[in-house]
């Protein structure tokens, strides 16, 4: 056996995967070759060092909560649209929270409703779509806190942006827009955007993360408006919303999140490396 042949067998020898005949030949070479023997010994020492590695052992609480966390993620993928919780803020309440006048609230709500209906009708006609059977999964699986938080963020941002795009400088109620409050709301949402972008690092949430980032740009523009009569900046923000298709994306995201994912048995393909 040459040194080259010997070294090719180091790995198998180290892990005991040489058969008896090859093992004997291998060891015979080591006995007559100090260089190969020294190299083999060093590799063995390295593996013994790696054997001293310690792994943290999770507490039993970790395992007890493991399924619940997984179930929440499964639910986020598979649950049918859930009825809105009664305590959740309505768009009208959110608008009031931002201090919008009644006329703007009505216009914004109407625009959101029409947009939602149109998108739903033309892009997401799901008539006859199989829905997972009601029962254990729906009661077992609840949306994650992150999902709820992202949903609230989108909803508030949408309301805010609808007010912006519907705002006309010449409109009678234009001066009634409370810009300082509007900007405060933008800053609050910017803070939330920072959190969500980090929390949504999971690649499965790529679309949502990109939407949050798009929204962040526009919110930043609004938050930094010099004055309420800075019409060019307002127009720029409106153009940004339009050009990035942000309202459309928000509606699509909301609809997508409400769609039930297929149950097992309706997927195809295999996981890829």
């Amino acid at each position: 056996m040459t040194c080259k042949e010997c070294r090719k067998q180091f790995v198998e020898a180290l892990y005991g995967e040489l058969n008896a005949a090859r093992r004997a030949e291998f060891e015979a070479h080591l006995q007559g070759c100090a260089a190969c023997a020294a190299e083999y010994r060093r590799l063995g020492q390295t593996l013994r060092i790696m054997d001293r590695r310690e792994q943290p052992r999770p507490e039993s609480d970790f395992w007890n909560a493991y399924w619940d966390k997984l179930a929440a993620k499964l639910d986020a993928e598979t649950a049918p649209p859930a009825p809105r919780p009664p305590q959740r803020e309505t768009p009208a309440k959110v608008l009031r929270m931002f201090g919008w006048p009644r006329a703007s609230r009505i216009a914004a709500a109407a625009a959101a409703l029409v947009l939602g209906i149109l998108i739903g009708r033309y892009f997401f006609n799901t008539g006859g779509e199989e829905v997972p059977p009601a029962g254990s999964r729906e009661t077992l699986l609840q949306p994650t806190a992150l999902e709820v938080r992202a949903g609230d963020y989108l909803e508030k941002s949408k309301v805010l942006l609808l007010g912006l795009v519907n705002w006309e400088a010449e409109a009678p109620e234009a001066t009634a827009l409370d810009f300082p409050r509007y900007q405060r709301a933008s800053r609050d949402l910017l803070q939330e955007a920072g959190y969500l972008k980090t929390a949504l690092e999971d690649s499965r949430q790529r679309r949502l993360r990109e939407l949050v980032a798009d929204l962040e740009v526009v919110l930043l523009l609004i938050a930094n408006l010099e004055a309420e009569n800075d019409l060019s900046a307002i127009e720029m923000a409106k153009t940004g919303v339009d050009r990035r298709g942000i309202l459309l994306k928000i509606n699509l995201e909301e609809i997508r999140r409400a769609q039930p994912l297929p149950r097992p048995g309706r997927t195809s393909g295999k996981p890829s490396i």
Binding site: Q55, P56, P58, F62, L74, P264, R266, S268
Partner: peptide, 28 residues
Amino acid sequence: ALDLCGCRQDAEDLSQEVFLKAYRFLPN
């Protein structure tokens, strides 16, 4: 996953992703 990632949080995320994928592809 812990051997591969080297830290607990990534290992938890990765292992949960594995079961999510397993659920999706179980029919295969």
